[in-house]
Amino acid sequence: MLCIVLILLSPLSWRMGNNELPDAFWFKQVFLVAFLISVFYCNVSIFVPKVLLKGRNYKYLLLVVSGAVLFYFSIIYFEQFIKYPMKMHEFFNPGEPYEQRKRWLPGDVFQILLYMVSIGLSTSLALVQKWRRDEEKRQDLERQRINTELSYLKAQINPHFFFNTLNNIYSLTNLNVEKAQKALLKLSRMMRYVLYENQKDETLLKKEVNFIQDYIELMKMRLTPNVILNLKIEEPKEDQIIAPMLLLPFLENSFKHGISNQKECEISIRLEVMGDTLFFETRNQIFPIHSDSPEAKENGIGMVNTQRRLELLYPNKHKLKFGKDEAKNEYWVNLTINLA
């Protein structure tokens, strides 16, 4: 387009009276356009990717200089072939005899500048294309890395949840067989969710909330009367989606550390949805776990993995705060996620 504007369209604006430029002039202009376009695409397709980007800088520089020399002498030969100097002399100086003169230096400089512009633009384009391909490849590798890491994190969360729940049901079998049977039914429904929904990147928020409610109902079967459970769980809209099993580790943490068989204790769980924003909060007192308990040996795998999943799945779209209120001996978690 630049060649067409500078070499073909620009001469059309020249004021020549009623006279038209000779055919030799237009032959030369078309030759220039064809040559510069060939230089442009050869540089984009061959010289830059196969020479410059391979680290052969001196060879590329030699090719550019050689191309400029070839370009210059090709113009001279073509002008002589079509008798360009004589035709232009007859057009601008009619009636005067033609004499061979030295070449017009400003014209040659302008043509070499056109060659350099073609080289510069094509090199820039080739480098931008290379950068874009590298960026797409980097993003693809990053997506693969994130997917692999998420799969690894979910693979850690699933056994963590499963063995904790089985341990709860095992304890319940010694107290009430009927409740244990109901607990197994709850667990089977929850494991269907784990096996099928957890393999997806996203699930309906409604399904995730139902899963949480099943988990809480399962936990309630083994709670003693001295445990006060405050629940405020709001039913979400049908079309909202969330990453599966994202909230479970916070619940597990509350029930693991917030229950005492001797002392009165309270666990608060709140889940609200306002527009596209999910608010989730847990509060529980902190009771020590026996050193010989399997849970005492766990290093908070579920919590650590959930924080990492939030960073990967909801970058700049979530706020997670947690801490301990020393005055009340209470641990709290506050999570906000933008689901849009």
Rank of each mutant, 00 (worst) to 15 (best):
M1R: 14
L9T: 01
S13N: 11
W14A: 00
W14P: 13
R15G: 08
G17V: 08
N18F: 15
P22R: 01
K28A: 12
Q29W: 08
S38K: 06
Y41G: 00
C42P: 00
S45F: 15
F47W: 13
F47M: 02
V48Y: 00
L52A: 03
L52E: 06
G55Q: 09
Y58C: 07
K59I: 09
K59T: 08
F73D: 05
F73E: 10
I76P: 00
K83F: 15
K83D: 15
K83H: 15
K83C: 13
P85M: 11
M86N: 05
K87V: 05
M88C: 03
E90K: 04
G95E: 10
P97M: 04
W104T: 06
F110V: 15
I112M: 07
L113I: 11
L113D: 14
L114D: 04
I119M: 06
G120Q: 04
T123F: 10
V128N: 06
R132G: 04
R138M: 02
D140Q: 14
R143P: 06
Y152I: 13
K154T: 08
I157V: 01
L166V: 10
N167C: 01
N168M: 06
I169H: 01
N176D: 04
L185Y: 15
L185F: 14
M190K: 00
V194C: 07
V194M: 01
Y196T: 10
Q199H: 12
Q199T: 05
K200E: 14
K206V: 15
E208W: 10
I212R: 04
Q213C: 01
Q213E: 14
D214E: 09
E217N: 09
M219T: 05
K220C: 09
L223R: 07
V227C: 04
E238D: 02
D239L: 03
A243K: 04
P244C: 00
P244D: 01
F250E: 01
L251N: 06
S254N: 06
I259Q: 01
N261F: 14
K263Y: 15
E264D: 01
S268W: 12
V273D: 13
D276F: 01
D276V: 01
T282M: 00
S293I: 03
N299Y: 15
G300W: 04
G302I: 08
N305H: 09
T306A: 05
L313E: 14
L313V: 11
L320K: 03
G323L: 03
D325L: 00
E330G: 08
V333L: 09
N334A: 06
